[in-house]
Simulated assay, not measured.
Amino acid sequence: MKNIFTLLFTILSFSASIGQNNPLIINSTISLPKDSLETKKLITSLNNLLIAKEKPNEENTLVWNKENVETYILLDEINGIEKSGKFKDDYFYRPFLTNVVKLSETEYYTQLSYIGVNENNPILRGSFELIAHKEKDGFKFSSTLTRNSSSWKIKKIGNCTFHYKNTINNKTAVNYEKAVKAFDKKLNATNQQTEIYFGGDFPELLKMIGVEYKSDYNGRETSTFNSKAENRLLIVQGSRDANFDDFDLHDLWHERLKNVVSSKIINKPIDEGCAYFYGGSWGISWNDIFNTFKLKVANDKQKNWLEDYGKFANFGESKEKHLMAEYVINALIVQKIEKEKGVAGVIEFVSCGKYQKDNENYFKALEKLTGITKNNFNESVWVLINNEK
């Protein structure tokens, strides 16, 4: 209890005096390395890491290279952590060093917390764990993923490596590897190495990668995180499927596309159309999605698809298992483009830029690849619908 009050006092004392580019605040109760030079190097390296985390991961020279992709997944969670939209302050949350434990002659376990103060009330934004690795001129840092899964079993099939605690569904793993290979071939992504860790649920996922707490995730039960470095893709699942009894082709398409195309330029409605066509949705096949679309949406022969595009009306069985007409339309267009231009045309189409309400980037790419314009969009979509079998 004394340590808690000491930390709160430290927070309140520092909160008024720290400006932008604030250094790491050190809790006075923690035990630092006895060697003062080593302590100085550790603190300096940590401060440099907290600055470098805002750069693209590949440019961060404070990452321990032996576990770079494992660390990127954690850095993505710490990136921008100081900002508060509510309080309109880019440096509202301050970094506190809350624990240092010597693991070996070359490694330290460290804990950081980002805390802000409003009206003398401390607000915890997030707490994170990192492993500091001693090098000649300082320290480099890694996530705790490898450490936390050191007793797990490993199974390798083709270019896929599966990390699991007890058992794994071998049939699912084999089918997954085949689907990965097929999608990667379609996307012309050769020699992509995929590693998957199967956590039981979302809290376990967070703990595995070194996130003790993050306010964004209050109440969340399941999720999947990933990161990429060169030809290595890392996936950490917390989806209550620790034995890997199932996977979704729809989600796998998204995953493999992002392995090739930056998410910054992917058009979501087109990407969803691809996922419908190549993998269905919610376990529903593309054929069944299209038949439901014809029955529930395309039964109105007076419908104007240009006027409706962007309304995102749900024709699925529930809000959770939603289906969107825009995605079906794009699935039909993707099918046409692949037949006429090949997969390269599909990649060009899906890479036309983020969704915009005016859809200017969408129609520019659409006209280039298919000749379909705003003027003939409605007519062209009806032709695609009527020709689909």
Rank of each mutant, 00 (worst) to 15 (best):
N3V: 10
F9R: 10
L12F: 11
L12E: 06
S28A: 13
S28T: 09
T29K: 06
S31G: 09
P33S: 06
K34C: 03
D35W: 04
L37S: 03
E38C: 12
L42P: 03
T44S: 15
N47Y: 01
N47Q: 07
L49T: 00
L49S: 03
L50S: 04
A52M: 13
L62D: 13
K66W: 04
V69D: 05
T71Q: 01
Y72H: 02
I73N: 07
D76H: 09
N79S: 11
G80A: 07
S84G: 07
G85W: 15
F87M: 06
D90L: 04
Y93Q: 13
Y93F: 15
L97I: 00
T98E: 09
S104P: 00
E105P: 00
E105Q: 13
Y108F: 13
T110S: 08
Q111H: 04
L112G: 09
G116I: 02
I123F: 08
A132N: 07
K134I: 05
F139C: 01
T146D: 09
R147N: 02
N148K: 01
S149M: 15
C160T: 15
T167Q: 10
V174H: 14
E177N: 09
A179H: 08
A179S: 15
Q193M: 12
T194E: 14
E195N: 14
Y197P: 00
G200D: 15
G200Q: 01
K214D: 12
S215G: 04
D216L: 15
N218Q: 08
N218V: 14
N218C: 06
T224K: 00
S227V: 00
S227G: 06
E230S: 10
N231C: 05
R232V: 03
R232W: 01
D246N: 13
L249E: 11
H250Y: 14
H254A: 10
E255C: 07
K258I: 02
V260I: 12
K268D: 09
K268E: 09
E272I: 02
G273F: 13
A275P: 01
F277D: 04
S281V: 02
W286N: 06
I289Q: 13
I289E: 14
V297L: 08
D300F: 12
Q302D: 14
K303P: 01
E307A: 08
E307F: 05
Y309D: 11
F312Q: 02
A313Q: 15
A313H: 12
M324P: 00
E326S: 10
E326R: 07
V328N: 00
L332S: 02
I333S: 07
V334N: 02
K336W: 03
G342Y: 06
V343Q: 14
G345S: 08
S351Q: 02
K357Y: 12
Y362A: 04
K364S: 06
L366M: 04
T373R: 05
T373H: 05
N378F: 09
V383W: 09
N386W: 11
K389R: 09
